[in-house]
Design a binder for these strands. Structure first.
Length: 419
RNA sequence: GGGGGAAUGUCCCGAGCGGCAAAGGGGGCGGACUGUAAAUCCGCUGGCUUACGCCUUCGUAGGUUCGAGUCCUACUUCCCCCA
């Protein structure tokens, strides 16, 4: 297969976004011929997207950069049904209210990566609740359902795996692929969208959309998937101590987001720079070639660039500076997460365990956990290890800056400030 | 409809002759080593308490017992076989 000619596919290829494509040459021709309209669908199962979704968002970003029109499709309708792809068990059905709340919370993040507006090349936000909710069951069965063969549906991975493992697959989930296929057709009719992108687990669903389009008379549609995101050591990516790596700032602070990227494994740095930053390829090649401890420079660059895309340049620089002071100088940074403690409490004396626990710094989830961590040497106050679990913090523990620095492990720090 | 099996520490898998805060993994967290990396080694992994200790946990609800994850009864859910 010859190398793609269109800017869009050239970039995606050299940056490692492409896992599978239904017809790379055909799509390449379309991309060169004129404005390419493509969409990615996002379920509203959580109140924020996470790093796993970032890959597909970046694909939309590059699409717009190269003159195409991106559509972000909110799954306001499909989330009510539940996608069985890649899941062992039926997910709990969310209430319509929860879905709506999640949808609103998720929406905001896209504007960081895409320009929305009424113009031709502006990005569009759609919501499949708009056309799925009013569907009439009988009419839908006759218009759309008749194009689906149950024999073939049973052979789709999402269904087959459940059946093979003898795990329950409810009828409602069985319908998911039909709805997603219909979305593709609907978006083609409304916006002339001819390409659906997504994670590799979406391949089956996307291809169904292409087939349905052919039967229902749309122009040729295309599928393009990106690889599943894992770290070089094989772990599924996107977890920190605190849980998932959320994109919404109120669920994961920009500082923690920066830290997440800073802690990338050596072997992943080059790959992640290509996928999650917009740095030019020759710059990435230079960074990626760094060896030994020099690769830390590349990791900092990765962290700052990735954070800048999501939270803005200024916030990213600030996170970088906070990290530099904390880790490289070992000095205090005012920008570490801060918790206010009433002065009266410090006058009386605050037990260390309590200070680290859920009532104050929230570095550990319980007093018992704090106790265990003292035994294991994991807690420090003003950089001094806590050895006595009965120790008490008071006003004289305040540093010159007027704070008490609490640390859990090497990496997590919180400042207590008298208030 | 009939017969059989299963649900364990709310991250997962999984042992458990009536004395169990409950074996063992995985995962996670902490420590050492490093470069805020990987690999490796060590420790921890229900809540509360300065401490003796107290409290809450084995699908749900009752019962037997000094004492129940372990025995009995009913219920719920899932699986298998027969119809």
């Amino acid at each position: 297969m010859s190398a793609p000619q269109s800017d869009f596919l050239k970039i995606l290829t050299e940056r490692g976004f492409i896992h599978q494509c239904s017809d790379l040459q055909g799509l390449d021709a379309k991309a060169r011929a004129g404005e390419l309209v493509a969409y990615v669908g996002y379920d509203c199962t959580a109140p924020s997207l996470h790093v796993g979704h970032l890959l597909s968002i970046m694909m939309l970003h590059w699409l717009q950069e190269t003159g195409g029109k991106p559509i972000t499709l909110m799954g306001g309708g499909t989330t009510q049904v539940g996608d069985p792809s890649g899941r062992d068990e039926t997910r709990k059905l969310l209430t319509v209210e929860q879905i709506e709340t999640n949808k609103q919370a998720i929406k905001q993040v896209f504007s960081r990566f895409l320009r929305f507006g009424p113009g031709g090349a502006d990005a569009v936000m759609a919501d499949n609740a708009e056309w799925l909710t009013p569907l009439n069951y009988i009419a839908f069965l006759r218009d759309v359902g008749r194009h689906f063969s149950v024999n073939r549906m049973l052979s789709m991975d999402s269904v087959r795996l459940r059946l093979e493992r003898e795990q329950e697959l409810s009828f409602i989930e069985f319908n998911y692929m039909i709805l997603q296929a219909y979305d593709f057709v609907e978006l083609n009719r409304r916006y002339g969208c001819i390409l659906q992108m997504g994670g590799s687990d979406q391949w089956g669903n996307i291809v169904n959309g292409i087939d349905l389009g052919r039967r229902m008379g749309t122009p040729q549609l295309y599928a393009l998937t990106c690889p599943l995101l894992t770290t070089a050591s094989g772990a599924k990516m996107g977890k920190t101590a605190a849980g998932a790596v959320w994109l919404n700032g109120d669920m994961l602070s920009p500082y923690d987001y920066w830290q997440f990227w800073r802690n990338t494994e050596d072997a992943d740095v080059g790959r992640f720079l290509k996928l999650f930053t917009t740095l030019p390829m020759d710059e990435i090649a230079r960074l990626e070639a760094l060896r030994g401890s020099e690769i830390n420079e590349a990791k900092k660059r990765l962290a700052t660039e990735a954070t800048a895309l999501l939270h803005g340049r200024e916030v990213a620089e600030q996170a970088a500076e906070t990290a530099r002071k904390t880790f490289e100088q070992g000095s205090l940074s005012e920008n570490l997460p801060t918790v206010a403690v009433p002065t009266a409490v410090l006058e009386t004396g605050l037990g260390v365990l309590t200070a680290f626990g859920p009532d104050y710094a929230k570095l550990v989830p319980s007093i018992s956990e704090a106790r265990r961590q003292v035994k294991g040497g994991g807690l420090r106050v003003n950089d001094q290890p806590v050895t006595d679990e009965r120790a008490v913090l008071s006003l004289k523990d305040l540093t010159a800056e007027g704070v008490i620095k609490l640390s859990f492990g090497r990496k997590r720090h919180v400042l207590l400030r008298a208030a």
